[in-house]
């Protein structure tokens, strides 16, 4: 009888399926009991904060800046004019990340590690930023980050007052009266990620990644490449390795040793003001 054998077949496969689901459910139960629920919650909190900061909707205004890309492209016209600008973009992205890691990353680490030093860090970063265009970009984003903290994040993190929160509050109020303070992005990024309990390595990684994303997004809008190519560059293991390597390289570099590793970058960024037509602020 063919119909009975088909019934038996389907019953057998149903039993096998139920057994597999039971096994999976048991495995899940075991995993959950190994990791304590509180640790999972802390991880989730850090992950949640990381997702907030990584969101391109975070109103820092980063999209307005190309960090010198626009000026770089104007200084390196492809020949013939129809040739692809992709090789130029790749070179620029490497140099730009290297510059950011050597000039700003030490201040991210320092802002995270010593919150009470934030005023000195802000002053020293300002003293170390030799060009008006780069200063404008850094201060605009730093102030925006401070505003996001004040208006959006602070009420959620007010349950426990840590010394980092106090340091940031003191800095915010000093900013209104002092003529010397500027609110640069890098040290504030370190301090805010500390308050949000993002692990330092992740905070530094995200700082560099966000920069890469900003540059690449600027490249899309400057018609250097399309949105799919852009995602491919962002997803590449090459970029991952580069960012990870830069974080490791800078881990122990003191702020006193922060400096320019690509001197011509200062010229490209500084000469942005001299472009005939501009679509970005830097």
């Amino acid at each position: 009888m063919t119909s009975t054998s088909t019934d038996q077949e389907s019953l057998k496969s149903e039993i096998a399926d139920l057994e597999r689901r039971l096994r999976d459910a048991k495995a899940q139960l075991n995993e959950g009991s190994i990791a304590p629920a509180s640790a999972a919650r802390a991880n989730d909190a850090a992950l949640h904060a990381l997702l907030l900061l990584a969101d391109s909707a975070l109103p820092l205004g980063s999209f307005a800046f190309s960090s010198g890309l626009e000026s770089y492209l104007a200084h390196h016209k492809p020949r013939p004019p129809s040739a692809s600008q992709m090789p130029n973009l790749h070179t620029f992205l490497r140099l730009s990340l290297s510059t950011l890691a050597s000039t700003a990353l030490p201040y991210v680490f320092a802002g995270y590690r010593s919150p009470w030093n934030i005023e000195t860090l802000d002053n020293d970063f300002d003293a170390s930023t030799p060009c008006t265009v780069a200063r404008r970009a850094s201060v605009a984003q730093g102030r925006a980050l401070l505003a996001v903290w004040d208006r959006s994040f602070k009420p959620q993190y007010n349950i426990t007052t840590t010394s980092a929160i106090e340091a940031l509050a003191a800095f915010s109020s000093a900013l209104r009266t002092s003529e010397h303070l500027n609110a640069h992005l890098a040290p504030l990024w370190g301090l805010v990620t500390k308050i949000l309990s993002v692990p330092l390595h992740d905070a530094a990684y995200l700082f560099l990644f966000s920069h890469a994303r900003t540059v690449i997004s600027a490249a899309v809008r400057a018609s250097v490449m399309g949105p799919y190519q852009a995602q491919a560059v962002l997803a590449s293991t090459e970029l991952q390795d580069r960012i990870r390597g830069l974080v490791d390289e800078g881990w122990n570099r003191p702020v006193e040793d922060a400096g320019q590793s690509v001197p011509v970058m200062d010229l490209w960024v500084g000469r942005h003001e001299k472009l005939y037509s501009r679509i970005f602020n830097s």
């Binding site: 050597s102 003293a127 030799p130 390597g245 390289e249 590793s261 001197p263």
Partner: peptide, 24 residues
């Protein structure tokens, strides 16, 4: 108080995978 710091660093760091000469 620091008024100005201009620090130039040319070495093998920076993960550019480029020779110094091409960085210039």
């Amino acid at each position: 108080r620091l008024l100005l710091r201009d620090n130039l660093i040319l070495d093998k760091h920076g993960r550019t995978d480029m020779a110094l000469s091409s960085r210039m």
